[in-house]
Design a protein around this nucleic acid. Structure first.
Lengths: 198, 198
DNA sequence: GTTAGCATGTAAGGAGTTACATGATTTT
DNA sequence: AAAATCATGTAACTCCTTACATGCTAAC
């Protein structure tokens, strides 16, 4: 089974809602998912091509054709939609909560797809991420102790700020985990709300 | 004049304090600078090689030789130090405050080297960074308004958290800018302290 | 009718990782 | 004497960007 990279996963998730063409995909990736603020076409189109080749998505060229000319070939505007294989792959990825799900690169995308992820997996990923960040916290604190004297004021401040940032993300995760747990305790809701943060 | 990439700049900055060998450089990069938490040797050593080739640093192999065997060739342990050209290059880079200085990739390293940067340049970079983040804030808010309805609870929460993170960094910068300004007003201190953050 | 935005793609190249390959030194 | 850590390096590969190349469509 070929690996699904983050970009492909994000695309699969997006196309699960509705077929889209490349240009739209790019804009939405920039808008909602974390790590793709301005993904270039030089990345996107080859990726779509690969996904078509591996049968995860299908290209539909008929989009505008009938809207204007009867027999028209307008070129441009290729809508991509999930195939059955694509749906299966997405489902399989969403059910997994392995190591990579809580790494920096992947976590944001997995989180963005929580609406399609079942409650138990959501919780596992949030907890995995929390553990990951705790480890990071320890590492940094350790390194900070070891280099105490080598730091000038600015390096120390940078370190302190980095630490604070991670601590805040841990707090954020704690809230989400708490939310997730109480939602599960009450109803075993499949699509629990993530709101209620001040 | 060849471009100095972030990694080279970080190395130049580190070697300005004292000669180090590759292994040490790697650990310190992970410890103090932001974007290099675990730089691989596969990146580091080729970079050092390039820097030697372009005359910015010099390799000194005599390190351990006299410590143990008189005529000994111990191999291993190559200490790198700045050449005059390297010092010049570092000085030139530190004096610059162009576009790239406040981008995500570069800012942390530039900040870590503030101890060697003059007050006016520090201020320009901090302000540049602040402006950059403000722009980002606007972009995100804009995109958020445009997609309002397409967001499920989790995507919205991810967006909100991202926004909050950027807002906090702006607050952090505001404090630093304030510090920097008052330090300049008082004494025109070249190596002002960055402390005083709760 | 021309500018701005929509839409698709390719080629070259940058910046990094992983996996491999090797060997010295220190600690247990 | 074995294990951990120090130390240096290369080759293949991944993922992404920039710059280029093309053409349609809507608005002013």
């Amino acid at each position: 089974m070929a690996k699904t990279d983050v970009l492909s996963l994000a695309i699969l998730g997006m196309l699960a809602e509705q077929p889209l063409h490349g240009y739209q995909i790019r804009k939405r990736l920039g808008g909602s998912l974390g790590p793709f603020r301005a993904l270039s076409y030089g990345s996107l189109y080859p990726c779509l091509k690969r996904m078509v080749a591996s049968g995860l998505i299908a290209a539909d060229d008929s989009d505008v054709a009938d809207a204007t000319r009867p027999g028209g070939s307008k070129r441009s505007r290729i809508a991509y939609g999930l195939t059955d294989a694509g749906k299966d792959r997405l489902a399989a990825e969403l059910a997994s909560s392995g190591a990579s799900a809580w790494e920096d690169d992947t976590f944001d995308v997995r989180f963005a797809l929580f609406g399609k992820t079942d409650s138990a997996t959501r919780l596992r990923i949030l907890e995995g991420r929390r553990t990951r960040l705790s480890e990071r916290l320890e590492e940094v604190a350790e390194g900070l102790a070891r280099m105490r004297d080598r730091h000038d004021a600015y390096t120390a401040e940078l370190q302190r700020h980095g630490l604070e940032r991670v601590e805040r993300e841990v707090e954020w995760l704690d809230k989400l985990i708490e939310n997730e747990r109480s939602a599960t305790r009450g109803t075993d809701n499949h699509t629990a709300s993530a709101g209620d943060n001040n």
